[in-house]
């Protein structure tokens, strides 16, 4: 599944609507919200469903020194059980799921679920139709307590308006609502640093960074490195990729439209590159 065109818009929407929300983006390999939702913990909810080489690739990465979700059974179980410590004590939790994952266990633990093509179940649902600006993409926000739906819908609508998006809502039933939003003006720029970076220090002099499933449109990339020393060579999805120096310790490149797999940035030099920040944007 390709990266979401509307991922930056949806990430901004959730950030505004649900401040303090703890997010687990478990759809990293299938077009989740990474890298647009800062602070999200990332991984794959159903790694066994991934092709072997992709699974092996994701297994290499660390976020904040920890394996990605899906590759660390003890921590995975704590997150799935909604253990407060695992979620950093956050009051509100959201998990982003891919097509192969079952939302039921998450919902049972009181976690909101955002999923593409979510199956039918006994859950309340807000269908999000987002165009940024086109084509429209559908995601379903699932929750177990239907009494929370009106407030959640109102918060989302208010956030959409605050973002300058055109939007419309409809309550189809107590358990089903829709929110349509159209925004061409959300100039989202993802900024990854610290624990938001998903990295694999492959070997001395080589570093891989996971960029997530990027939207199907060209974007700009800016890599800010610790100053000193020559700039590393840049690779995209394993192959050399043209990049330009843009000041001391800064590399800039154009990213082609995202594909169906998470983009991987590679940096290679005489010593392992020290990345301070990665920015992705228009």
């Amino acid at each position: 599944m390709a990266g979401l065109n509307a991922a930056p818009l949806l990430a901004a929407l959730l950030r505004h609507a649900l401040p303090g929300l703890a997010v687990l983006d478990a759809a990293l390999a299938e077009g989740g919200l990474y890298p647009w939702l800062a602070g999200a913990r990332c991984g794959a909810a159903a790694p066994a469903a991934l092709p072997g080489p992709e699974r092996a690739l994701l297994r290499r990465f660390r976020q904040g020194g920890r394996p990605l979700f899906g590759f660390d059974p003890a921590t995975d179980a704590a997150l799935a059980a909604g253990a407060p410590e695992a979620w950093g004590g956050a009051a509100a939790r959201l998990v982003v799921l891919g097509a192969a994952a079952d939302p039921a266990p998450w919902l049972a633990g009181g976690t909101l679920v955002l999923a593409r093509a979510a199956p039918e179940g006994g859950w309340a649902r807000i269908i999000l139709l987002a165009g940024a600006p086109a084509p429209f993409e559908r995601l379903d926000l699932l929750l177990t307590e239907e009494e929370r739906l009106p407030a959640l819908l109102a918060a989302l609508e208010a956030a959409a308006r605050a973002l300058g998006a055109e939007c419309g809502t409809r309550r189809v039933s107590p358990r089903l609502a829709t929110l349509t939003l159209l925004a061409g003006a959300v100039e989202a720029r993802a900024a990854l640093e610290g624990e938001a970076l998903i990295a694999d220090a492959a070997a001395e002099g080589r570093l891989r960074l996971l960029l997530g499933c990027l939207p199907p449109r060209p974007l700009g990339l800016r890599v800010i490195l610790a100053p000193g020393g020559p700039l590393p060579a840049l690779f995209l999805d394993g192959a050399p990729h043209p990049a330009e120096a843009a000041g001391e310790g800064v590399l800039e490149a154009r990213l082609p439209p995202g594909g169906v797999r998470p983009a991987v940035l590679g940096l290679a030099g005489a010593t392992t590159p020290r990345v301070r920040r990665v920015e992705i944007g228009p």
């Binding site: 092709p51 080489p53 992709e54 092996a56 690739l57 290499r60 694999d200 492959a202 891989r208 690779f235 999805d237 394993g238 192959a239 050399p240 797999r261 991987v264 590679g266």
Partner: peptide, 12 residues
């Protein structure tokens, strides 16, 4: 001949 990262060569 392009040089590829072996961890990502499967995509080719």
């Amino acid at each position: 001949v392009a040089v590829l990262d072996p961890a990502l060569a499967h995509r080719r």
